[in-house]
């Protein structure tokens, strides 16, 4: 009887574990194998073992800060583009999401409508988002048409490296901030109203209420948002690929695009190099996840100490 009770959880867990194993752990194992093998053959048994050659090729650089000095310059351009994108996109998006959540948490007219407006882009497919913005930003696009009508000279929004990166970040924030706003809004609504009443009775200023009541209590949600947004930013591909194709030049080429291009777009498909690239990306993602775990544990420890 006891053993049958012990087996029950496994009975329910097995289907999920099988799916997880086949579609997550098995690809990870295959990816690891590919990263240490070479050639252009698809079947693992046909691929020669090359040790760390693929990783060495990717890491072969005069200076990591100067992609032009690297053997795989596109990979390092992609690394720095991804880092730049992640830093700006995550910072600005979390900040805007927070501001938006604070505003939408107040008793404003048409609050439900505004919440819908901010969440709506999240429902759109990334490809649709990119195509809409491409239509707006191309040389003959809506933005230039409006600009020219009011006397502003035509600008190549997607063909100038600086502008292209700006718009890639902007579009990404526009498309995703609704989701993070929703998480923060839920966090704000979980803060007990009596704390605000107490602050009001103590005649605390709105700024003091924000910094001493709202933000400390919202911190766990903010951390979740920050880490989720960072992981998503590092994995960015589809929107940017449709919007700019990684251009101009390689100005908006990110690591995932490099992996896709190396493994699937070229005639000579270097699966090993692509797998090694995804291994390095995985290392970055694991580092971010560990950081999240460390911060949340420190947070829990702090709460227990209080």
């Amino acid at each position: 009887m006891k053993s049958s009770t012990a087996r029950t959880p496994w009975f329910f867990l097995t289907p999920n574990l099988v799916i997880f194993g086949v579609f997550t752990f098995l690809p990870i194992a295959i990816n690891l194998y590919y990263a240490f093998t070479g050639g252009v053959q698809l079947y693992p048994k046909d691929r020669p073992f090359v040790g760390t050659e693929n990783l060495a090729t990717l890491l072969d650089c005069g200076s990591y800060l100067d992609p032009a000095s690297c053997k795989k310059d596109i990979f390092w351009r992609a690394v720095w583009n991804t880092a730049q994108f992640s830093l700006f996109q995550v910072t600005v998006m979390v900040l805007f999401s927070l501001i938006t959540a604070l505003v939408l948490n107040r008793k404003i007219i048409g609050r439900g409508f505004w919440r819908g407006v901010y969440f709506y882009p999240v429902l759109l497919s990334p490809v649709v988002v990119a195509l809409i913005w491409k239509w707006i930003l191309q040389r003959e696009g809506v933005l230039n048409a409006v600009g020219v009508a009011v006397g502003v000279p035509q600008t190549l929004w997607l063909a100038e490296p600086g502008w292209a990166m700006f718009w890639v970040i902007f579009v990404s924030i526009w498309a995703h901030m609704g989701f993070y706003t929703l998480i923060l809004l839920a966090g704000l609504q979980a803060i007990p109203a009596d704390l605000y009443e107490a602050a009001q009775m103590d005649r605390a200023s709105p700024w003091r209420t924000l910094t001493r009541v709202t933000l400390p209590l919202l911190l766990p949600n903010l951390l979740v948002v920050l880490v989720l947004a960072a992981i998503k930013a590092v994995q960015t591909f589809d929107e940017v690929f449709v919007l700019t194709g990684g251009g101009p030049g390689s100005a908006t080429t990110f690591v995932v695009q490099f992996i896709y291009q190396t493994g699937f777009q070229e005639q000579v498909r270097l699966y090993g190099l692509a797998a090694a690239g995804s291994l390095l990306l995985a290392v970055a993602l694991i580092a971010l996840t560990l950081l999240q775990l460390k911060i949340s544990r420190a947070e829990e420890a702090g709460e227990r100490a209080r």
């Binding site: 191309q138 040389r139 190549l156 997607l158 063909a159 700019t244 194709g245 990684g246 251009g247 101009p248 030049g249 390689s250 100005a251 908006t252 080429t253 695009q257 291009q261 777009q265 070229e266």
Partner: peptide, 11 residues
């Protein structure tokens, strides 16, 4: 510029 320079990779 946008035909060859505006797109990335070998697209």
């Amino acid at each position: 510029k946008e035909v060859w320079g505006g797109v990335g990779g070998s697209q």
